[in-house]
């Protein structure tokens, strides 16, 4: 009898396509993506309304100054950079996008365990790691499509609320944001998938994944933020003590070790790298607003590299860890 051996790429495609078709029929992820679009849209619109309010306040103050015959240059005009309005969108991708990716990863594992199909796939002539790889590639494809939908929708909405069309440069920045987002969400998908595949029951895996999400996505950056001395006193500690800038720097230098520790907690979170990279690329962080893209990329390539290596490392762990045959069913 001739030996039957499917090609590796064929097997990967077969598994990934079956997953995609199942997701398309199930529609849970479609609804989740639409919910993310809605959340991103809410962020964008409320941001625009707030900016509009600032502009109106500025216009009123300026008119008042001019009426009094004073120089209007005394008050700073609110600056408008459309991409800055995407701050809320990025944060929703960071938080809600991450949850959707975890749930998608959980579903990719739970579906196979609950039906005994994992055992059927693993007794086919393909390496076991290929199964994991197919699932992760499927997750990356899902993340790519969902994020493209979110960013295109918010891009169009941005034009609507700001009245300014996005140029090629802006589109390039959005494309970079998309790429970083795909790495970020794929990493979280992999985490949800791996834990749901390894845990005693997939639900336990999902719970562990959510707990890690809270720690990595929410708590670690929050701790770093809270430890900032200037966030410990309302209005900032130095401002309240009326210490001049030069003296502030001297005092801060004495806390270099503390500051490194604080930064260390922040950068342990993959979310913070995603945020730092996208905030810089989109000019959300003031120091990068209007900065040329090549300069931003030169400074922030470390964050992108971290995202890439983190996704790769997590994927590697999931692929290399053998699948426990006692985990073939939903409950074991």
């Amino acid at each position: 009898m001739p030996e039957l051996r499917p090609s590796l790429s064929g097997s990967l495609l077969t598994i990934a396509l079956r997953d995609a078709r199942e997701q398309a029929r199930d529609r849970v992820l479609l609804w989740a993506t639409l919910a993310l679009v809605a959340a991103a849209a809410v962020s964008l619109v409320t941001g625009a309304i707030a900016l509009h309010g600032d502009a109106a306040t500025y216009a009123a103050a300026r008119a008042q100054l001019l009426a009094l015959g004073k120089d209007a240059a005394a008050i700073a005009a609110p600056e408008f950079y459309p991409l800055k309005l995407l701050r809320g969108t990025i944060e929703q991708i960071e938080i809600m996008g991450a949850v959707i990716a975890l749930v998608a990863g959980y579903r990719a594992a739970a579906a196979e365990r609950g039906r005994q199909t994992l055992a059927l796939i693993l007794t086919r002539p393909l390496p076991h790691w290929a199964y994991g790889l197919a699932k992760i590639l499927g997750g990356a494809a899902l993340a790519a499509v969902a994020l493209a939908l979110v960013l295109v929708a918010t891009g169009l909405l941005l034009r609507l609320v700001s009245g300014i069309g996005l140029g090629f440069g802006d589109a390039g920045r959005l494309a970079l944001t998309w790429a970083a987002g795909v790495f970020y969400l794929t990493a979280l998908f992999t985490l949800g998938f791996g834990l749901s595949l390894w845990a005693k029951s997939p639900v336990s895996g999902l719970i562990y994944a959510f707990a890690l999400w809270i720690l990595v996505v929410l708590v670690a950056p929050q701790i770093g933020d809270t430890m900032d001395p200037d966030n410990q006193v309302a209005g900032g500690v130095f401002a309240q003590l009326s210490v001049p800038k030069a003296e502030q720097d001297r005092i801060k230098a004495g806390f270099a070790g503390y500051e490194s520790f604080r930064n260390g907690i922040e950068v342990a979170s993959v979310t913070k790298h995603f945020e730092r990279f996208t905030f810089a690329v989109l000019g959300i962080k003031d120091t990068y607003t209007g900065a040329p893209l090549d300069k931003v990329l030169a400074e922030k390539r470390g964050d992108l590299l971290f995202l890439f290596l983190f996704s790769l490392g997590l994927g590697g762990v999931v692929l290399l860890k053998p699948i426990n045959p006692d985990r073939l069913t939903k409950e074991s």
Partner: peptide, 20 residues
């Protein structure tokens, strides 16, 4: 936790989990 504060006060998600 993360959507309603945007509607009521334009609070972005990370601001919503900072006690200050």
């Amino acid at each position: 936790t993360f959507v309603l504060p945007e509607l009521t006060a334009n609070l972005h998600p990370t601001a919503a989990i900072n006690p200050v």
